[in-house]
Design a protein around this nucleic acid. Sequence first.
DNA 1: GGTATGATTGTTATAGTATAACATGTCAAG
DNA 2: CTTGACATGTTATACTATAACAATCATACC
Lengths: 171, 171
Amino acid sequence: MAHTHSDSCPGCEVPDLAFAAHDHAHCSADALSRAEALVAEKGLRLTPVRRRVLEILLEEHRALGAYDVLTRLAAEGFGNQPPVAYRALDFLEEQGLAHRIRRLNAFTACMHPGEAHAPAFLICRGCNVVAEAPAAPVMAALQVAAGQSGFVIERSTIEALGLCPSCQVAA
Amino acid sequence: MAHTHSDSCPGCEVPDLAFAAHDHAHCSADALSRAEALVAEKGLRLTPVRRRVLEILLEEHRALGAYDVLTRLAAEGFGNQPPVAYRALDFLEEQGLAHRIRRLNAFTACMHPGEAHAPAFLICRGCNVVAEAPAAPVMAALQVAAGQSGFVIERSTIEALGLCPSCQVAA
DNA sequence: GGTATGATTGTTATAGTATAACATGTCAAG
DNA sequence: CTTGACATGTTATACTATAACAATCATACC
């Protein structure tokens, strides 16, 4: 691993790196190496398709549709049928290396793989950037609301649509 | 309006009525009359299709897919093409009379129309019941998380998948 | 090395969700 | 009674996702 997530990564202390100027090459190389470590640790395989899909997602802080990913895979000689993309995306999601953005029917790379997190997403409708926000307090509040009626949460979806700082200025 | 939401409705004080035994005929008649009042207030029309779609959603505390709704509409002599259902559902959602449950690609009637609320949903994977939970604290936490990076939230999706009390016992 | 085993990928086919675009009909204001 | 806005119906199509099976690859074991 390049670092322990708090040192030497400009912006990693900031809740949502994605909206701020940052060394993107660094932040995605970092996520990739963490991904490899995590998968190896679990005895699973980051095969070429899976790895390439993760790289594709890491290339941007936007969410990509399964068919967007598929198109790029096909152009590189991988299979060109939907299951090829969906299976890799599902694998990445199960391993916590990518997240599904339900509002967009799309997927985005996880920027904090390995750290336990039920993430919250900030989706800018101006530039389409998707940022992961610190969700612990949000989850806590949701747990309280659910607990009042004895409901037990297994998975949760927390997404906010709005405008990032830059796009507010533009508007 | 049958009541002001805090009096005489057994369960209306409970955060999520849906999982508890309650007078469903009452709670849905109530939501319907509130819906009519709200729409009239805005100078809009609760046409037969729209009204019927709302009634269909109110018949259960589950989320129905657009095509489920469409099937029932068609059986009653309304149009049988997707836009008929989607337009009514979109209208209801815009007016805050129904909500889209993104995890399920489905829609559910709003149980608290008129009260300002960015709702949170508890979705039971056992019995498929969907309950609206008090979301103010959740939204507040989300606002804080977003505010840390200057992101302005316009709409949000908060959904939890899990098990309701009854289904926990069953499992 | 050979081979059984399970995981992964490729492919075909189809299911499920949603919207664009245009024609027709309805209603209320003038 | 006509105009204009809104609502509905219809055709066609786009987008998203999965089931089912075949072929391939990797690994562990003999």
